[in-house]
Computed example of a mutant assay.
Amino acid sequence: MVSRWTVDDTLRQPLRRAGVLAAVLVVAGLVVGGFFLFRGQRAPEQGARLAADAFLTRLAAGNIAGAYDQLCNDTRSRVEREDFVAGIGGRPAVRSYRIDGVAATGPHDATVSAALLDPTGASSAYEMRVTVDRGTWRVCGNPLDAG
């Protein structure tokens, strides 16, 4: 004969396991949700930094036409590829750069400050506006100020 305590103990273990599993899933959900929530708050700075880095990397590599591809539609509608290549190519080359700061100005806009170094080692400050365009972050504004 089965005692009442044995049946209750048999039922309690699966219930206890289900409760622990539910608690673990809730905590994991909070951790993952918090990660994406706080990551989303940093997204403008991260996206803007990556876009500026891609643009400046192309300039430093001498890939001026590739840098043009990193520009937003608004800027590309005002500056033709050939004018951009000629304008940037007529200035001192960008040997390297350093991104000094990124400030979000909205959920889809930011300003990136950088120091551009030319082949002689001279540094010049450069600030660029970066915005979401065509589904990704792109450099906007007056690109002929770059370098």
Score class of each variant (00 low, 15 high):
residue 83 D to S: 12
residue 15 L to P: 00
residue 35 F to C: 05
residue 83 D to F: 04
residue 58 R to L: 11
residue 9 D to H: 05
residue 25 L to I: 08
residue 146 A to W: 00
residue 144 L to N: 02
residue 27 V to R: 01
residue 108 H to W: 13
residue 39 R to H: 14
residue 119 P to V: 08
residue 101 G to T: 09
residue 96 S to I: 03
residue 114 A to Y: 03
residue 98 R to M: 10
residue 2 V to G: 10
residue 68 Y to M: 09
residue 126 Y to T: 14
residue 5 W to Y: 13
residue 9 D to P: 00
residue 77 S to C: 07
residue 104 A to E: 01
residue 75 T to L: 05
residue 72 C to N: 15
residue 114 A to E: 03
residue 69 D to P: 13
residue 88 I to M: 05
residue 90 G to A: 06
residue 104 A to R: 00
residue 60 A to G: 08
residue 71 L to C: 05
residue 62 G to H: 07
residue 94 V to A: 06
residue 110 A to N: 03
residue 66 G to Q: 06
residue 74 D to C: 05
residue 41 Q to D: 13
residue 118 D to F: 11
residue 46 Q to A: 11
residue 51 A to L: 09
residue 96 S to N: 10
residue 128 M to D: 02
residue 91 R to F: 12
residue 70 Q to F: 09
residue 35 F to S: 05
residue 8 D to R: 07
residue 40 G to M: 11
residue 114 A to W: 02
residue 144 L to E: 01
residue 94 V to S: 02
residue 84 F to S: 00
residue 106 G to N: 05
residue 42 R to K: 13
residue 30 L to S: 11
residue 110 A to G: 10
residue 16 R to K: 11
residue 113 S to G: 11
residue 106 G to K: 03
residue 19 G to P: 01
residue 22 A to T: 06
residue 102 V to N: 00
residue 54 A to Q: 14
residue 39 R to A: 13
residue 85 V to A: 04
residue 65 A to Y: 04
residue 140 C to A: 09
residue 116 L to P: 01
residue 102 V to L: 04
residue 72 C to Q: 10
residue 116 L to C: 06
residue 6 T to P: 01
residue 97 Y to D: 01
residue 122 A to W: 15
residue 136 T to I: 02
residue 65 A to T: 08
residue 43 A to H: 05
residue 61 A to C: 10
residue 92 P to A: 15
residue 14 P to I: 10
residue 8 D to T: 13
residue 118 D to A: 08
residue 76 R to D: 06
residue 126 Y to D: 03
residue 25 L to Q: 07
residue 43 A to M: 13
residue 9 D to G: 06
residue 89 G to C: 12
residue 46 Q to G: 10
residue 6 T to V: 13
residue 40 G to D: 09
residue 40 G to S: 15
residue 80 E to L: 07
residue 50 L to R: 10
residue 105 T to F: 09
residue 13 Q to N: 11
residue 58 R to N: 15
residue 48 A to P: 04
residue 135 G to D: 00
residue 32 V to R: 07
residue 45 E to P: 07
residue 107 P to G: 14
residue 9 D to Y: 06
